[in-house]
């Protein structure tokens, strides 16, 4: 075998090995989220501490919401379609839970802190649910919490106009009273399904 052929084979093996490793890593990452979604494990590294400002202007951290279940949605107020739909579904899920809904705190974290000041959020949240909490913060604080929850978001400018929109991951997380992710509710989960998943976790 020529030397160049041997090097060629060696390179090919190396490429395949790296590729396989990468694929494995991706599968594991995907698996974490899937397991969290089905509620099999709760100790995956999603979520974590944050320091933000609520819609009343109060400084808050994740500790403020411990003791209750929390539904966390990442969105923005300049979003006329997906966010109102998702927040409407959260409100319906809480209705579905009846008296048990007091054990659940609905929270929207803005991924558009530039426009979503506490004042803007305070007018917005009450349209959906009397107990919905809006959270915003500095761009850095929002980046930190979005990364912790594996939320992708990106500003998209329209060259024709002066406004912009946001691309964003549309996840609703259910956190247990200890603040751990108990379940991941993907966009399109019906209010009835949401309520049923929350009930399952309430029963333990």
């Amino acid at each position: 075998m020529k030397k160049s052929t041997r090097i060629g084979i060696l390179l090919a093996v190396l490429v395949i090995a790296v590729g396989a490793g990468l694929a494995q890593w991706l599968v594991i990452r995907n698996d974490d989220v899937t397991k969290a979604a089905s509620g099999l494990i709760t100790s995956v590294e999603i979520g974590g501490p944050f320091a933000l400002t609520d819609h009343t202007g109060k400084q808050v951290t994740e500790k403020d919401y411990l003791g209750n279940f929390t539904l966390v949605f990442f969105g923005y107020t300049f979003c006329p379609d997906v966010c109102p739909t998702e927040l409407g579904d959260i409100a319906l899920a809480l209705d579905e839970l009846g008296d048990d809904s007091v054990a659940v705190t609905p929270v929207m974290i803005s991924i558009d802190p530039e426009r979503d000041t506490p004042e803007v959020l305070s007018q917005y949240v009450s349209l959906f649910h009397e107990r919905l909490i809006g959270l915003t913060g500095s761009p850095e604080a929002i980046k930190q919490v979005a990364d912790a929850y594996r939320i992708f978001y990106k500003r998209v400018d329209d060259p024709d106009y002066s406004y912009y929109l946001m691309d964003h991951t549309s996840f609703v997380y259910l956190l247990d009273p200890e603040g751990n992710v108990a379940s991941l509710l993907r966009y399109g989960t019906s209010p009835e399904e949401m309520a049923s998943i929350i009930r399952q976790h309430m029963r333990g």
């Binding site: 107020t77 300049f78 006329p80 109102p84 004042e119 917005y124 009450s126």
Partner: peptide, 12 residues
């Protein structure tokens, strides 16, 4: 359409 807040500048 859907109700908006005074601060909300977009609707569907």
């Amino acid at each position: 359409s859907r109700a908006t807040a005074p601060s909300q500048k977009a609707g569907g």
